[in-house]
Simulated scan of single mutants.
Amino acid sequence: MRVCVYDDDRVGALASDSTIVDLTDLVPGHTPADERMNALIANWDAVKPTAAERVAAGGGVPEADAVLRAPQPRPRNLFAAPVNYHKHQQEMGGDAGVYVGRQILTAEVRKGFLKAATSIVGPDGAIELPWEDRRFDHEAEIGVIIGKKASRVSTDDALDYVFGYTPLLDITLRGEEDRSFRKSFDTFTPIGPYIVTADEVDDPEKLDFWLTVNGEERQKSNTSYLIYGIAKLIEVYSEVMTLQPGDIIATGTPEGVGQIVPGDTVVLTIPEVGELTMPVVARA
């Protein structure tokens, strides 16, 4: 199933007739608008049969007429894996890397960092670059949405705790500031347009994906090249803290990261999950 947030922050799903059917009544009425997806995910086992019936029946808002927003606007935690592909490690450091002469440590050492949840933006928005005199890069990633509380889970069991997957861009300011600062600007975590539930993804550890800027391919890889795979990331993070329904893990980016500037259009394609298109603008 492909679930989303649309129009006036309603939660819905893409139906078989290419309409968006409303699922908002399946979450408690007192739920704040930006918490509705968290509530839907937390209660998914109970509401899934009703949601499936509505998806089969269709008759909702035509997809072309709906305003699709970030499908998970307010996770409690937004985790990110640093340098989780070996070829990305190579392009960041060494004699010709972005950080010339540096030894770049991978996720095996750095493990992870937190981004501000307020950096999330959906396909209804844009990537807003705040400064003209600094370099900002695109990073293509898979977003993993946690489905239930996970504490000290093993790699073997980890994928049982996944609700779904979404295209995710990790926009990055290059420089000497801490990672969390450089990656937490408003609009620096575009996601969407849908979360595809885990039961519709055959093998998340073998997902093809690619990124283009203005039609030019810059990144192309497969999650099988991850240093820490999706299950391993869940094991590592859940050993430290209890993951909550709706939490997002950004799995890391492969080689090919490059600068973006106002006027660019960035497109991330994950065939089994979806396509995210984001314009780049200067912050007003």
Rank of each mutant, 00 (worst) to 15 (best):
E63M: 13
L68N: 02
L68S: 04
R69M: 06
A70E: 01
P73Q: 02
P75S: 08
P75L: 09
P75M: 07
L78E: 05
L78S: 04
V83Y: 07
N84R: 14
K87A: 15
K87F: 14
E91C: 12
G94H: 13
D95I: 09
G97I: 08
V98S: 10
G101P: 14
G101K: 14
R102H: 15
R102W: 11
I104K: 07
R110Q: 15
R110I: 10
K111D: 12
L114D: 06
K115Q: 11
K115A: 02
A117L: 00
T118E: 12
T118A: 14
T118W: 01
T118N: 11
S119H: 02
I120N: 01
G122H: 03
D124Q: 02
G125H: 07
I127S: 03
L129P: 02
P130H: 04
D133E: 12
D133G: 00
R134H: 12
F136Y: 15
H138I: 03
A140M: 08
A140R: 00
A140N: 11
E141R: 03
E141A: 05
I142Y: 05
K148R: 15
K148E: 04
K149G: 13
K149F: 12
A150C: 13
S151V: 03
V153L: 08
S154M: 02
D156H: 08
L159R: 09
Y161N: 08
V162Q: 01
V162N: 03
F163P: 03
Y165D: 01
T166L: 08
T166M: 11
L168V: 14
I171K: 01
T172M: 11
L173Y: 01
L173G: 05
G175W: 10
D178K: 13
R179N: 13
S180E: 15
S180I: 12
R182F: 07
K183I: 05
K183F: 06
K183W: 08
